[in-house]
């Protein structure tokens, strides 16, 4: 029986929780700490916090935010955004994250994944993929919060990262992100079928139907939920009940 992890995704800018559509048109929703503790109490399995501007503007990541947000949340916390060096990763771990999401830096330094994994273990490094479809409907990889086209094949890039020591893959469909229209099932299936580390599906969740459809049609073991949680379109307990009723297992 497959156990499904539910991950609340908190995109932040400065001290605020924000959310947009396709990574654009960002709206301020409130204090990320308040949202994180609400999701913890309601039974979320894991929290992912992203600093959406650090890479884009070449600024240091907002480590204070992790420090404050993670207090007394006894569940796994991941952090991403602006991690460029082993020192950045160290700061993220020291500030309360259990793993880091890394994307933009891999295009500048091909050794960064293996350097971090060597010290902190493979399980601490998650390669983050920001994927858009191009005019020919082919998937292509982006970085700097969906702004820059890396002109790489996501699957190949993920495979390389895993070979270099990444222990997990976060696959975000920028096209679906914030749309509430459902996950890019085809993309997630392709990555899950070809990568033998756990994959987190991200981008597009608007209802528990979307989650159920995704887990039934792909072998994915973790789903990221942003908009649907932030706007109260979905209840964590009800998602878990539905998963259980459909033959999946969930965290305690």
């Amino acid at each position: 029986m497959r156990t499904i992890r539910l991950i609340a995704r908190l995109d932040t800018k400065n001290q605020n929780l924000i959310k947009g559509i396709n990574f654009e048109g960002l709206k301020i929703l409130g204090n990320p700490t308040d949202f994180a503790s609400k999701y913890y109490i309601e039974g979320i399995d894991e929290i992912a916090i992203f600093d959406t501007i650090a890479s884009l503007y070449g600024m240091p990541a907002n480590f204070d935010l992790i420090n404050v947000t993670t207090k007394n949340l006894f569940i796994p916390i991941g952090f991403g955004g602006g991690i460029k060096t082993v020192d950045d990763a160290r700061m993220a771990f020291r500030s309360g994250s259990d793993k880091i999401y890394i994307n933009s830096a891999t295009f500048q330094n091909s050794k960064i994944v293996s350097e971090i994994a060597k010290i902190y273990g493979n399980q601490s490094v998650c390669i983050s993929l920001q994927v858009k479809r191009d005019a020919n409907k082919n998937w292509t990889l982006f970085y700097d919060n969906g702004r820059e086209n890396a002109n790489k094949d996501p699957l190949e890039w993920a495979s390389n990262a895993v070979n270099n020591g990444a222990g997990e893959v976060l696959a975000t469909s920028v096209d679906m992100d914030g749309t509430k229209k459902g996950y890019d099932i085809e993309l997630i299936k392709k990555i899950v079928d070809n990568i033998k580390v756990p994959v987190i599906a991200s981008g597009g969740c608007g209802s528990s139907d979307h989650i159920l459809e995704l887990v039934e049609k792909t072998g994915v073991t973790a789903v990221s939920i942003g908009t649907a949680l932030h706007y109260n379109l979905i209840e964590i307990e009800k998602i878990k009940d539905r998963l259980i009723n459909n033959g999946f297992s969930v965290a305690a």
Binding site: T3, R5, G165, E168, N194, K196, V197
Partner: peptide, 15 residues
């Protein structure tokens, strides 16, 4: 792994 022999596998999650 289907393609390149053996690959690292992470146990991540609730059990």
């Amino acid at each position: 792994n289907n393609t390149d022999g053996y690959q690292l596998n992470t146990h991540m999650g609730w059990n």
